[in-house]
Design a protein around this nucleic acid. Structure first.
Lengths: 257, 257
DNA sequence: AAGTGGTCTAGACCACGCC
DNA sequence: GCGTGGTCTAGACCACTTC
């Protein structure tokens, strides 16, 4: 490693230090989980003040390359990603109830997947949901909130919204898991199959509240995904997903012509 | 605004300051483009040292909420997003040459879209591309590199890779724009239509180099999208897109059953 | 107790944009 | 010239983890 600041280089010292460390990581001198030199030893190595070295480490944290753990040290961080298939996936009105397909998919990729039903409630529809369900904002809707984990770590929030009139009295409106899956249940309650869905994704930085819910370290973007499910062109479910962006990849099939 | 640090609150002072400013933004006291109080006036307001106020502003920059411009001030930042449709989009082997569909789409959304062909070259295939084209890494492939702009600002990089044998001698291999579009040309060169594509997206923070190429302020994630185009199950093109995550949304249609 | 990262001070000086 | 943000110092003290 360079361990020297070049004063004739106009690059700020903290970026020179960050650059040295970044190169060490991309050259695999330091790999996932490895500990970086301590803040104090970097100060000594480079002859820099603590604030300067901190800036360098902050920079790399914000790039998502390292994670600092108080009392322990600073470590390289390169999490694996779960592939989420947007097509030919789990969305089937008739579903083999052996093992849930999402479960199997995660297992095949070597993850332990967990799912918690956090809440079932009736609430006024948020703007983005109302728009997609084709109702006025503020109309009462039923919401089922889930938290999903990968390898025991929170990785995804999913809030699914339904028209109250369509699901009241059904298992969907009760605070309990639905063994065959919500979509099979929804199709059966409606008496028509679910025909298609549309998905809209954006990437952004999390709000502080979201960062806490998903336990996101600095430098981790989230992917917000809005999925609308239709039965014969009528929107029957709208779900707002919030994914840990560092631990997912999203795939879609696109037919041409 | 609060303008006061509560010493009995265990929340660090810089997060209290950031919280005050964040609330002002989300409550629309400060809107897109508005200038925040200067660093020095915040120091005076809160009775905090410069470093502390800077930490607060850094925090908000990393959330993508504000942008600091040296010599000018700190401003609220909420850019609009271009919708990129993953389905029924521009990918047609026969394409009406009136106005390019992507162009029309951007215009309909009120953006001025620009496109530059940066380079056409033959290079060894990067790992991720080789994998998707079904060839050995390092095999020579033809690449066409584009930079796309929205409202005169760089917003997207796109590197499209082709099998050398399939495109040599065609207009695709020459350093010039292709009026009817690359895909119509590719289908005609191959003598078969393009049948389908797959897209894989990840969200992450940019490398410093990428941040410069796309002129990304701090707190802006990128979306890296790998698209593979097939003609009868044979991969014929692989493109690596890099989007300014703050200025795009991605939409897909998902058929069910 | 010793070592780690996290916060904060009270400055100095630099670089940039605008009038 | 003046006001803006950007970098940096040389510390102090706090919070957390490990032994």
């Amino acid at each position: 490693m360079a361990k020297r600041i070049n004063p004739s280089d106009p690059t700020p010292a903290y970026l020179q230090i960050a650059g040295d460390l970044r190169r060490a990581i991309s050259d695999k001198e330091l790999e996932d989980g490895d500990q970086l030199p301590s803040l104090r030893s970097l100060m000594a190595d480079y002859g820099a003040a603590s604030g300067t070295v901190r800036q360098a480490l902050d920079q790399l944290q914000n790039e998502g390359l390292i994670i600092a753990r108080q009392g322990q040290g600073v470590f390289v961080r390169m999490p694996r990603r779960l592939e989420r298939r947007g097509t030919k996936r789990h969305l089937r009105s008739a579903r083999p109830s052996a093992t849930a397909p999402l479960e199997a998919e995660a297992q095949a990729q070597g993850f332990v997947r967990g799912q918690q039903l956090l809440e079932v409630a009736t609430v006024p529809a948020p703007e983005s949901i109302a728009q997609r369900l084709g109702i006025e904002p503020g109309t009462q809707v039923l919401v089922r909130r889930h938290l999903l984990t990968l390898d025991e770590e929170p990785a995804q929030l999913a809030d699914s919204y339904f028209h109250v009139a369509q699901v009241e009295g059904s298992r969907i409106a009760r605070n309990e898991k639905i063994p065959g899956g919500v979509h099979a249940e929804l199709a059966s309650v409606l008496g028509t199959p679910l025909t298609h869905a549309s998905e809209e994704l954006i990437a952004r930085m999390p709000t502080p509240g979201e960062a806490i819910e998903l336990r996101l370290p600095r430098g981790t973007p989230v992917v917000e995904l809005l999925r609308t499910i239709y039965a014969s062109d009528d929107p029957v479910e709208a779900t707002r997903f919030l994914f840990d962006g560092s631990r997912h990849t999203f795939t879609y099939d696109v037919p041409l012509d």
